[in-house]
Amino acid sequence: MNQEDDAPENAYTADPGSADDAEATRRDAGEAESSRASRGWWDRNADEYQSEHGAFLGDDRFVWGPEGLDEADAALLGPAASLKDKDVLEIGAGAAQCSRWLAAQGARPVALDLSHRQLQHALRIGDDIPLVEADAGNLPFRDGSFDLACSAYGAVPFVADPVNVMREVHRVLRPGGRWVFSVTHPVRWAFPDEPGPEGLTVSASYFDRTPYVEQDERGRAVYVEHHRTVGDRVRDVVAGGFRLLDLVEPEWPEWNGQEWGGWSPLRGNLIPGTAIFVCERA
């Protein structure tokens, strides 16, 4: 990885860092800079990401995080049978694997992503899912367009203003619509992003909300991730107009022997790695 040894846990990505000379630091990063960095990072790294993790993600599987929690088992959006004929927005869809699973249940998904290259991979896998290239903070849909919205490690960890994203999702959902999203568990930010024993020692303050930034030699951000505590995330959900129905912390399953960045069986059996927020439009 191109990050410092004491850098905080990073989101559900391939190894963060876009160039060998990227400098890891903690500093402020606003909405425009964060969005620009995310678009560039994913466009540059989509090929490697899909090559390295495509087999685990599958072409039409809905996985909530590196632990491998499957929506087919978790039913966080509701029973599979209830998804039929539902309009669903997937935010930060990548190659639209989750949307394909939703379509197989009879839903009508739309896959949205900031990265053009990620959506090209969605087209490579199949052209059966409507794709939209757009920013999660400015959703290009009419009010009340969807019954459900979901995001598996997409958009939310990378935006400077998560409340704006919550409000946008609230706007495009119909009354009573469910919004489910997963992020790196906030407690991981206190630990180094390492899968081995060195990743089990607290090295930073959990309460330090300073963004993690990788920047080039000119100081321009090439990767940005924003830390929120558990309480912050709950308050963001409520400020966005949602009720929090559940907070799911997947345990590491015995069958999963993979390492993915800082995720591993060693750490997964001791500390949570993923937090899934199940919300309902108020």
Results as ranks from 00 to 15, higher is better:
Ala81Glu: 12
Gly65Pro: 00
Phe62Met: 01
Asp15Glu: 11
Tyr212Thr: 12
Ile125Ala: 14
Phe191Asn: 01
Gln258Ile: 08
Tyr153Asn: 11
Ala275Trp: 03
Asp216Trp: 00
Glu168His: 10
Gly17Pro: 02
Ala11Asp: 13
Leu77Phe: 12
Tyr206Trp: 04
Cys150Ala: 15
Phe141Cys: 03
Gly196Ala: 13
Glu33Leu: 08
Asp73Asn: 12
Gln97Ile: 00
Arg174Glu: 13
Gly273Asp: 02
Gln3Phe: 14
Glu251His: 11
Tyr206Met: 05
His185Ser: 11
Ala96Asp: 07
Gln258Gly: 08
His170Ile: 04
Phe277His: 14
Ser35His: 00
Asp193Met: 01
Asp127Thr: 08
Arg167Glu: 06
Val132Gln: 09
Asp87Met: 10
Val230Pro: 06
Ala103Phe: 04
Tyr153Thr: 01
Gly261Thr: 00
Pro66Ala: 15
Arg220Tyr: 03
Trp42Leu: 13
Tyr212Cys: 06
Ser35Ala: 04
Met1Val: 14
Asn10Gly: 08
Gly94Met: 07
Asp6Arg: 08
Ala107Pro: 13
Phe277Thr: 09
Glu217Tyr: 09
Trp42Thr: 10
Glu168Gln: 15
Ala136Leu: 06
Arg235Tyr: 07
Leu102Lys: 11
Gln105Arg: 06
Gly58Leu: 09
Asp15Ala: 13
Gly219Trp: 13
Asp143Leu: 01
Arg117Val: 13
Leu244Lys: 05
Ala96Asn: 09
Pro175Tyr: 07
Trp101His: 06
Pro272Gly: 07
Leu247Glu: 12
Asp135Gly: 03
Gln258Thr: 10
Leu270Thr: 08
Gly219Ser: 13
Glu9Arg: 15
Glu9Leu: 13
Cys279Ala: 13
Asn164Phe: 00
Trp255Ile: 09
Arg218Asn: 13
Phe207Trp: 14
Tyr12Ile: 04
Cys150Thr: 15
Leu89Thr: 00
Gly176Phe: 06
Trp42Val: 10
Tyr206Ile: 03
Glu168Pro: 07
Tyr223Met: 09
Glu71His: 01
Arg243Pro: 01
Val163Met: 12
Asn10Cys: 10
Gly78Ser: 07
Trp263Arg: 04
Pro16Phe: 09
Glu254Cys: 03
Leu123Thr: 15
Ala155Ser: 14
Arg61Gly: 07
Ser151Glu: 01
His227Trp: 07
Leu245Asp: 15
Val202Tyr: 02
Ser205Asp: 15
Glu23Gln: 15
Gly262Met: 04
Gly241Gln: 04
Ala24Cys: 13
Val159Pro: 04
